[in-house]
């Protein structure tokens, strides 16, 4: 299996799907970049993080569409193109910008099929970079998936490895429902093995990353890698855990989580979002409601604080759940009996 970065895995999927289906288009700000610049160089960016690099040369301006900075119209145009038969992949540079296009996501794309009596297909993918880790500050570092997961009609993918990124984006593009695809910006350069050829991961199937006896740890996106580091250390002390990566928060594989809790009796959820109305709270609520009798101890939610992501290195480090904090919380939970 070849090793590649998450960025390259995503880029490969876009090439594959655009070759496979002439109805797939990509659109967004600087998606190739360089249009109207003084150098005359196209593909000057290839998307802010390089995910769409090179597409313009193979597929041309009609299918690789550099847009003005107009997020509402980027998503809106993707929605309309989908209703008219295309499979658009829109890029919103930073997930935080969901604030300026939320109407087109939750009032439009998410509702077309329902409102129109089941006749609409809305195969839109809205890719966004998310998360802290680059000291990008309060308006370029949020995770936003809780509020998107709350929207009926939307699907939400949160890949944590290059392989999952490939498999989930492939599924997202071929899916007939609108999908918000959240790429953690701290993971773009992370390398991993990626299956060759056609590779699609069904939505709503969590990954059981490792198995153990003492607790169930659910970790989302970048938090999966942090949890693995914590579990590596704990393993030295004889503490082992199931580690579950949901991969999609909508649909959510709550069955696997409850099944695991039935074996371990303890649940830890690691979520980079603030705690209120979060995925951590959602999973905790579901396990409390449907798996309470399995629990030997209170559920532990390891989240960012109820604050915007800050800028300074020290503050951002304090904001994001760290491997050390995850390790300490699991250790304390297991020691508690």
């Amino acid at each position: 299996m070849p090793t590649m970065t998450m960025r390259d895995a995503l880029n490969e999927v876009l090439f594959n799907e655009m070759r496979r289906d002439p109805n797939v288009i990509v659109l967004g700000e600087d998606i190739s970049g360089g249009a109207g610049g003084s150098s005359g160089t196209r593909d000057a960016a290839g998307g802010i993080f390089g995910v769409t690099k090179g597409l313009i040369h193979e597929f041309g301006e009609d299918r690789v569409i550099d847009t003005p900075i107009s997020e509402s119209s980027i998503v809106g145009a993707a929605n309309g193109a989908a209703l008219a038969g295309l499979r658009p992949v829109a890029e919103i540079m930073f997930a935080d910008f969901v604030g300026v296009c939320f109407d087109q996501i939750y009032n439009q794309a998410a509702k077309f099929r329902y409102m129109f009596g089941g006749k609409a297909r809305t195969p839109v993918v809205i890719r966004m970079s998310m998360g802290a880790g680059m000291n990008a500050g309060p308006q370029h570092s949020q995770t936003v998936y809780p509020m998107l997961t709350a929207v009926p009609g939307l699907k939400v993918a949160v890949p944590s490895t290059p392989a999952d990124a490939k498999g989930l984006l492939t599924t997202a593009i071929r899916d007939d429902d609108p999908v918000v695809f959240l790429e953690h910006k701290a993971l773009y350069a992370r390398k991993g093995e990626v299956p060759e050829g056609d590779y699609a991961i069904p939505f709503g199937e969590a990954a059981l990353v490792r198995e153990g006896a003492d607790a169930t740890v659910v970790a989302i996106a970048r938090m999966r890698g942090f949890a693995e580091r914590a579990l590596d250390t704990l393993a030295g002390d004889g503490i082992t855990c199931d580690l579950i990566d949901p991969r999609t928060t909508s649909p959510l594989d709550d069955e696997l989580i409850i099944e695991s809790v039935a074996n371990t009796g303890r649940l830890v959820i690691v979520d980079e979002s603030p705690p209120r109305c979060s995925i951590a709270a959602d999973i905790a609520g579901q396990v409390a409601q449907n798996g309470f009798h399995h629990l030997k101890a209170p559920i532990v939610q390891i989240t960012a604080p109820h604050a915007p992501p800050p800028f300074a290195r020290e503050l951002e480090r304090a904001y994001v759940p760290s491997p050390n904090r995850i390790e300490a919380e699991i250790r304390a939970l297991v020691a508690g009996g």
């Binding site: 309309g80 008219a84 295309l86």
Partner: peptide, 11 residues
């Protein structure tokens, strides 16, 4: 209007 721009892109 943004949605109609998308339908026009499809065209």
């Amino acid at each position: 209007p943004p949605i109609a721009v998308g339908a026009a892109i499809a065209s």
